[in-house]
Design a protein around this nucleic acid. Structure first.
Length: 198
DNA sequence: CGTTGGATCTTCT
DNA sequence: GAAGATCCAACGC
């Protein structure tokens, strides 16, 4: 197993990290059941200078406090009272950058993920939508603050982590566009911070 | 096929 | 008290 190391997240360019996360694996084990997916879609949120970010202007509240932790921490919050959205915090502590995971291709535990999604039967080739991703992987917003980099074994293994399985997505296979659902961010809504595998 | 609105609840104003 | 980094079913065309 090759868990993404702290250094991966500590880099200063959150947009580059969002791109690099394509092709990596988001893995969870809850109650001994392992589920995972290859990350197919991400969005970068560039902290205090980004109007679309929860931490724009240095805003710091009980909800987004996790964003100010060190890179490699999970920032998970409740959206519209319904969906848990999963982000990875990047950069060093005090700099509230994050990458939202918006889509995966289910790999391990496909059947369980389909059951969690409420659509058993057909194996999904793509699982798109940040709320659906967390639902399928069993990620709840109460898990916010989880350290995603701790490399340990057995029962102490973190319940959520990111893994490199040696897959590299060439730039030619990546679609870059504007972020979704951030119209309120004005000019920043048009930044090319969304990355998708074609 | 595009558009609309309800669900649901925490967070911040 | 309003709005939100969403989703899906129900509608109208």
């Amino acid at each position: 197993m090759n868990i993404l190391p702290r250094e991966f997240y500590l880099r200063t360019d959150v947009v580059l990290i969002a791109r690099d996360l394509l092709g990596k694996f988001l893995v969870t084990t809850f109650k001994g059941k392992l589920t995972s997916g290859l990350i197919t879609e991400t969005e970068a949120y560039a902290g205090v200078t980004d109007r679309a970010s929860h931490s724009f202007g240095g805003r710091r509240t009980a909800r987004n406090d996790i964003m100010y932790r060190t890179g490699g921490t999970a920032y998970i919050y409740l959206c519209y009272g319904v969906h848990s959205l999963f982000n990875v915090v990047t950069n060093q502590a005090g700099i509230p950058h994050a990458v939202l995971i918006r889509g995966i291709r289910p790999v391990d535990g496909i059947q369980l993920m389909m059951e969690r999604s409420g659509t058993p039967g057909l194996p999904a080739e793509r699982l798109d939508g940040p709320g659906r991703v967390t639902k399928a992987l069993g990620i709840h917003y109460s898990r916010t603050g989880t350290d995603l980099t701790r490399m340990s074994s057995g029962r102490d293994r973190p319940a959520i982590w990111l893994e490199d399985r040696g897959i590299h997505i060439p730039l030619n296979d990546i679609l870059i566009s504007e972020r979704i659902g951030v119209q309120y961010a004005g000019r920043d809504a048009m930044l090319p911070y969304r990355f998708r595998i074609k």
